[in-house]
Design a protein around this nucleic acid. Structure first.
Lengths: 227, 227
DNA sequence: CGGCATCTTGAGTTGGGTCAATGGTCGTGG
DNA sequence: CCACGACCATTGACCCAACTCAAGATGCCG
């Protein structure tokens, strides 16, 4: 895409932004069941989304940080099917979907951009499905830490020194395991010299070591590898 | 939405369809890594999508039947990150995304429609994440059967008499469990009088019973239920 | 300093995985 | 039409990763 087009796109995106909103720790951006009207771009802070099942069970479906967009779940039924809750004081930009849809001045790039964003969300979800469906706990936590590391790095923070915004219980919910298991694996990784753990402060000592954790169980688990 | 608009939308959708394509059992609609250009609407048949992890592990991320659209994963990077494979002889309509994006004649409903479709896919993925992350095997299989039943019913087939198009191994991959576990649970459900199982032919005898299976484990598993 | 939430650790249990054998079903070719 | 082989599904016995329950430890905030 030529630079000019990108500039236009960014300008157009800016115009779409209705208003900024501050969200205090623990407050919701939107709530399960709320009528849908807007998407939200995280400006700063850290936000989790969690779906509630009828029977009271909850599952965290994502953690969002600066530059990421949440709320796509609401478009289908015009109501949000999950709640978005700030894990620290955050700021979001409100993007009314109507403005995106009714954008009319020949800038097809805008639609392309949003299709791309939604596609990225779908790809991300598929990654989590693979994680939950075919990896063991240690692999899941390793993958989770590496993913966080990458995202922090992309935002100019240290790739090695992570400050987790969520508690163990929330990591567990996201990764499909119990809080005790999360805790034990942190301890194990620390004993193996992969990490140094101080509460929510994680120092990655051996990035390759973490990467090797993922896939270590793969040999036993290849459903369709018949070649 | 007024009827007129819906008619226009349908007409416009028809125009978008580039060509129909027959896919034989076992053949791919698109393959992991293929360059992305189009979405595919299932016209008839049954199609699975599966992602491959670097280490050789595979995870089935969805089963698609008539009226459902696949391929959204490819938009983000212009390359498909999963493979779509027909489980029986199928027919798909090819929908080049460019035609959707460049649709220019004031029909904002078309974009809205595609946003909605993608949102639905995201919601569906979140449901699977909840399933994989916080349900036990019996609950997962029950939820899976009920979901299939509903989808068959919506297409005019029997809600009670399901003909599974996928094999046990594929159900297992989708639901994050081993083939032996799938088999054992089918047997158990049958012993409980919930189902009658003959190979790929499943007769649901007790729909409410199946629904009760889901959530039976919930009491022990409410991470954020503090009220 | 006390009270509360969160995290860690231990001991015991279990759901589902692993391994291995058997049983069905279907398509093919004699 | 039957026999064979390939593939798929079921079942049993055993095992282990992760869960449950319970007790402490740690840190945080008023």
């Amino acid at each position: 895409m030529p630079v000019g087009a990108t500039q236009d796109l960014l300008k157009k995106l800016d115009e779409l932004i209705y208003v900024r909103k501050r969200i205090k720790t623990g407050a919701t951006v939107y709530h399960n069941g709320n009528h849908f009207h807007s998407l939200y771009a995280v400006k700063s802070g850290f936000i989790k989304t969690e779906t509630l099942h009828d029977d009271g069970r909850a599952q965290i479906t994502g953690f969002y940080m600066a530059g990421e967009i949440l709320g796509f779940d609401g478009i289908a039924t015009q109501a949000h099917i999950c709640s978005a809750i700030a894990l620290e004081d955050s700021e979001v930009c409100v993007i009314p979907l109507e403005r995106v849809e009714n954008n009319d001045n020949g800038l097809h790039e805008l639609h392309h951009h949003f299709y791309k964003l939604m596609s990225r969300e779908i790809v991300r979800d598929h990654t989590i499905m693979m994680l939950l469906g075919s990896m063991q706990s240690e692999e899941r936590l390793a993958a989770f830490l590496l993913n966080l590391s990458l995202r922090f790095q992309l935002r100019g923070y240290s790739a090695n020194n992570l400050i987790l915004r969520m508690k163990r219980e929330e990591i567990g919910s996201y990764l499909g395991m119990k809080i005790e298991t999360v805790s034990r694996i942190f301890t194990k990784f620390q004993e193996q010299g992969l990490l140094e753990v101080h509460q929510k402060n994680i120092l990655i000592l051996d990035m390759q070591g973490l990467e090797k954790i993922i896939g270590q169980h793969a040999a036993n688990n290849r459903p369709f590898d018949k070649n």
